[in-house]
Structure formats: C-alpha cells, structure tokens
Amino acid sequence: MSESPRKIRVAVVFGGRSTEHAISCLSAGSVMAALDPAEFEIVPIGITREGRWLLASADPSQLAINRDGDRPRLPEITAASGEQVVLAADPTGSALLSVTGGDLRTLEPTHGSSAFEGIDVVFPVLHGAYGEDGTIQGLLEMAGIPYVGANVFASAAAMDKEFTKKLAIAAGIPVGAYAVLRAGQSLSEADKERLGLPVFVKPSRAGSSFGITRVADWADLDAAVATARAIDPKVLVEAAIFGREVECGVLEGEFGGAPEASVLAEVRVSADYVFYDFEAKYLEDATEFDIPAHLPAEVAARIREYATRTFTALDCAGLGRVDFFVSNEGEIFLNEINTMPGFTSTSVFPRMWAATGVDYSKLVTRLVKTALRRGVGLH
C-alpha cells in the first residue's frame, strides 16, 4: 500500500506590529480558508502588536470582524492566542522553535500534526511595517525558507512611497507632484506654490489610509503633518489629482514568464467621505467598485502596461496591486504599489483576478507554488 503524498506545509504569518494588524488578520483568515486541506497543511503563526510570535488558530472565524454591538470589533492577536514560538534564522536546522519556560526547543507535533517538523513555504499575510517592508523577508532569506511575495529590496522600496516614486520616474512612469518632509523639515513656500491646494499629507511608509489628511487650508498643514508623523517621521505632501482612482492587480508570470495584469477596478466612494480612508475601506458600506472599470480601451491598456512596468521597475515578485489616478483631463499618474495588498475574499485584488479568470482559491494556490518554484536567494 503506497503512502499518500506529503502535503505542502504552509506557514501563514499574520497580525504584526504595524497599524495594519487587524487588516492582516482578516486577510489571513481568508487565505487559510482557501488553502485546499487535501494539498496543504497550515501552520498558523500570529504576531502580537508587541511582536511576539504565537502558534495561533487556523479557524477563519477567529479572524473575522465581530459585528456585535454599535461598532464592529476587528480581530487581534494577543498573548493568549497560543503557544509562543520563534522562527530561527538558521537554514540548517528546524525553522520553528517553541519557547517554553524561557527555553527554546524544537516544536513537537503536539497538535496532532507533523506540520511542525518543517515549513516548506511561508505566506506572510502582513501589511505595513515589520511585514511588508522587507524585514520579515530578510529573516526568511536568512532562514532559507521560500515565501510568497516580493524580496527584501522590492518590499522596502514599495513600502516607502518616496522611493516608489523615484524608481517609477526613472522607468518613465508618470507620478503626481509631491514633496518629501524628513524629520524636522517643514514645507517651503516654494513647494506650497508648486503643489497648490488641496494637498494630501501621508506617512511615507504606511498603508490602509492610516495617518492621511486632506488639507484645504495651509493653516491646517502642521496638524496634518503631526498626524502623519505619529506613524512615520518621514511624510509626503502630494498635490490633489481630480479625477478617478483605478487599481490593477499584477501577478508574477508563471514559470518565469512576463508579469501579468488583471482587469482594472475603479474605486467609487460615497459622498459622505472626502476620500478613500480607512473607515470607507473596511468598516462602512461606503465604497463601490466597478470591475472591470469603465474606461476607454486605450486608457485601460496603458494603465495595465504601467502596472506591469512598475512591478518590474521595483523588481517585485509574486503579486502586487498598483494604484493609479486618472485625471479629469485623461492623464494617468501612479499613486502607489502594494506588495501584499488586502487579501480577504472581498478585497479588490482577488476580485480583479476573479474577473480576469483566476478565482480566489486558484490565486492563493498559484502564489504558494510560485514561491516554492522561486525559492530563496538571488534570481
């Protein structure tokens, strides 16, 4: 009697230390629900807001929004979520170790699973700092474990909006007018005249619209900068672009092929919201999406080409969601690229790919297998 083939052991890592902790939990619940249990064995690793790694629950219902009461309660990984573990940066030994009584030991299969004997691939469903910025990617490279998504450099460059813009400009991709304020710097009068009003003030290295303020009066600028600096000492001030917000999903080409672009999505926000902020994205029924976006064919084709060119310019891998503005005059401007976009089954990225012909389960499977084929190290 032949043995059944060994399942692929996927460590899904989620939560984390960034302001996007809860969004990561929501995304991870969807990813774990989509992984076929006949082919994959899940090792769920939750990271608390303080940075403690825990062997958490793989039950997607534990990572959903609780809508009891007046205000939705977002999921969170806490110290009570499971047994503390660490990922060893040693490619020659067991990757996952348990912390017991202050001591490290190889994690035994105490949960009725052999999954803890080794990890084949990591799906780091982490958004923002300490997850999407190259830090965990560096740890996984040191540990010799393949992982889904961009490498160290691409993750860091995409996370920092200043350097995303610089690399895009070098690749001939248009970006809107902006200024960078490093710690202690203020916006000059010349920059105020160049940018005009209104402007958007945002942390350079954050996502999910955290810390963003629309400023229509220069008297409000200092308060907006302070709000952004509560997240990141480096702040971007961007000129407003009046028009439409359009997003495009990009996947690494299968078997080394060219990157592929999805159909486009247009974001439409309720008149009750000034812009596409955190509550409009996640907590309220304030946002609608046209998928595919209703754009002239030549405009859609140019955006998709800019999306794959941005993906290549930053040396991305695996996946990315590239966001653009289309002005009322028909000009296209890159906004940003997310190397680990929101990944719930209702998030824009998987919905764009579903409309392109790749459903959620196939999308997750493709990303895991692409990461396994790519491995670690230079490519």
Rank of each mutant, 00 (worst) to 15 (best):
Y276K: 08
A297I: 00
F278G: 14
D359L: 05
R309D: 07
V180F: 00
A115D: 11
A28W: 07
T310V: 06
Y147N: 04
K192F: 10
G102N: 01
V122F: 15
R229W: 00
P72N: 06
G257Q: 14
G15H: 06
R73I: 13
L187N: 00
M1Y: 09
V269I: 07
I303T: 02
G112W: 11
A177L: 13
T356F: 07
V358M: 15
V86W: 11
K369M: 13
S155W: 03
Y178W: 07
A28L: 15
D59H: 12
G93Q: 13
L378Y: 07
A56V: 13
L372A: 13
Q62T: 13
F349T: 03
R17S: 10
W53N: 10
P91S: 07
V237Q: 04
T106W: 09
L126Y: 09
K166W: 14
A239I: 08
T19G: 04
Q62I: 09
R194T: 09
A115T: 10
E331C: 08
R214V: 02
S18W: 01
E288Q: 14
R321C: 02
R373P: 06
G46D: 13
F255M: 14
V322W: 01
L236G: 00
V121E: 11
V180W: 00
L314S: 00
L372M: 14
P5A: 14
S94K: 12
A280I: 08
A64P: 09
T106G: 06
I8V: 15
D217N: 12
V148H: 07
C248M: 06
G102V: 02
R304A: 13
T164V: 01
A88E: 11
W218N: 07
A300H: 02
V348K: 12
A240Y: 12
E284H: 08
G69K: 11
F289S: 10
A317M: 09
M142L: 14
A224K: 04
S188D: 04
H379I: 15
E20A: 12
E279C: 10
E162L: 00
D315R: 03
R67P: 15
V31Y: 12
H294R: 13
G15L: 11
A216G: 10
E83Y: 04
A230Q: 05
A230R: 01
K166N: 13
W218F: 12
E247Y: 02
